[in-house]
Amino acid sequence: EITKEQQVLMQAILKAYERHQIPQDVAKRLLHDQYSAEENFLLLTEMATSQVQVLVEFTKNIPGFLSLDHEDQIALLKGSAVEAMFLRSAQVFNRKTPAGHTEVLEERIRKSGISEEFIKPMFNFYKSIGELLMSPEEQALLTAVTILTPDRPYVKDHAAVERLQEPMLEVLKKLCTLHHPHEPQYFARLLGRLTELRSLNHYHAEIITSWRVN
């Protein structure tokens, strides 16, 4: 059973998650089909910036986050931004979109100058997230858990971060049991995605390098 306290925590995170989305006008521009390689690159860069801003606004509303040391807040966001963005993109990608939209989006990513060997694991990840059929609560909590990972570089007060992450993991675990009573491995599968995200984060650093070379 989910306690009242856990309910409050979950609702606060869900509310923040749903309130902070990429602005519609920015998202819409992704679907305009005429663009040069340079325009594509600039738009994707702008999207990424917008995603980081949205991510920070969401994170500020995670109960307890702003009570952490300021430099630790930055270290956590810096260490998790790429992973949180991949999670959010996966959800956008798996959402039911009007016919053709997914293709336009996929085309853009493929034309971004990222080499195929990096794109493949990314789309595989999107697919594996889609297969989980997460509820909005699970998505929001998983993102919060990702951001509040204590072992990011430059985080000083690991214990303080752990104290925030632990209750979120507990609620997430309970939710998984309630939502997926016939899948005892569901929670473990969610955690497995976090490992996959770590690899993508590592890939991302290489993508940046290859982009610079290009």
């Binding site: 910036t49 801003q53 920070v56 807040q73 810096k78």
Partner: peptide, 21 residues
């Protein structure tokens, strides 16, 4: 790396500011 600095700048600004205002 410069890319990380860019990310950090965006984070610092967003942490200080308030998009909702």
């Amino acid at each position: 790396p410069a890319s990380n600095l860019g990310l950090e700048d965006i984070i610092r600004k967003a942490l200080m500011g308030n998009l909702e205002e």
